[in-house]
Simulated scan of single mutants.
Amino acid sequence: MTKKAKHLFLTIATLLLIGCGTDLPTPTSQSDSLTTAQAIACTFSIPINEVPDPSPGDTVYLVPQIEENTLGWTFSWRAEPDVLLDDDIVSATLIVPNDVSQIEVDLEAVNAEGCPGVGSLLITVAQPTSAATEAVATENGTESVATLVPTEEATLQPTAVPTDTRAPSPEPTQAPTATETSTSEPLPTSPPQPTATSISPPIITDLELLPSGAVVVRWIWNGQLTPTQNFAVRFWSERDPRPEARFSITWTKENQYAFSVNNVDYPIGTYFVNVAVMEGPSNGVHTEVTRSEDRPLFVDAPDPTTTPPPLP
């Protein structure tokens, strides 16, 4: 090969290398576009159970409507105003403050595959209605309706005086009239006794589902169990509307109890728990004295072989 041919060959090879280098695609931009498209495709919305208009001081339970297993998920709750008691679990809790008309709740979650989900709920707070007091204008100012009672009684007495002056003999007949007026005041009919004898319900202070598949519930009660009374712990699915579905897990004298859930007896979903004070034997005739409010719990049922750990 001559020197001129070698030079021409090297020139052509150099041009081919430069041309191939300029036509190479940019893998980084394609990868970024694919990742963005996948994230948009797997984004999902999370409905949150509607909450009826609560009143200030009420405890509200926020339960997301998620049908699949939430193992490996992460949850983040936010509220405006910030009244959440817990914000990093499946179901959150808040207490309605005073002097607010609405509470905005937002939920962000990421499932086990990394797909983001969002949900929101607007809670309308029931405003307390103050009883309007009637008033009557007097020369000195304004007086409540309660001041009208002695005024009416005072007007009744002068009407009895001229009757007595006209006919002294019928005084005995007017005396019974006065006694009838006195007996017409049934003061003992006021009902303070039922209020004094009312029994307050148990209050559930702790309800959680442990990673081992154990449900732990603890409660307090300001009463004292008699020898014939027990606490009954009840657990049932929100999907089962039958009254008999709210059966007792156990009867106990203690203020705490733990039991295990599995995929056979307790399918994944939302359940309710309450604690009742029962009078009578569990295997005979018994009655409910009082019970706590129903607390929701979302259950990711573990393997059927799991057993609850011992309580501390």
Results as ranks from 00 to 15, higher is better:
Thr177Arg: 09
Pro194Leu: 07
Arg78His: 13
Tyr61Cys: 07
Pro312His: 01
Arg166Val: 09
Ser282Asp: 06
Asp106Pro: 01
Gln38Tyr: 13
Thr250Trp: 01
Phe44Val: 11
Glu67Val: 11
Ser29His: 09
Asp32Gly: 07
Pro309Val: 02
Glu244Val: 02
Thr138Asn: 06
Asn230Leu: 03
Arg291Pro: 00
Phe231Thr: 01
Thr305Ile: 07
Ile220His: 14
Pro97Thr: 03
Gly72Pro: 00
Gln157Met: 08
Asp99Tyr: 15
Asp294Val: 04
Leu148Ala: 12
Leu62Asn: 00
Gly141Arg: 01
Ala92Gln: 04
Ala39Asn: 14
Asn255Met: 07
Ala232Pro: 05
Val233Tyr: 02
Thr26Cys: 14
Thr59Cys: 03
Pro304Gly: 07
Thr189Asn: 09
Val285Asn: 08
Asn283Arg: 10
Glu208Gly: 07
Pro64Gln: 08
Ala258Asn: 08
Val273Arg: 00
Ala112Arg: 05
Trp73Leu: 05
Leu15Gly: 15
Trp77Asp: 02
Gln102Asn: 15
Pro192Cys: 09
Pro52Arg: 09
Thr155Ala: 10
Val60Arg: 00
Glu67Trp: 11
Gln193Asp: 14
Thr36Arg: 15
Val83Ala: 04
Ile46Glu: 03
Leu311Ser: 08
Gly117Asn: 03
Ala232Gln: 13
Pro64Asp: 09
Arg218Met: 03
Asn49Ser: 13
Leu17Lys: 05
Ser169Tyr: 14
Lys253Val: 06
Thr155Arg: 11
Ile48Asn: 13
Ser101Gln: 14
Lys3Gly: 11
Ala39Gly: 12
Leu34Pro: 01
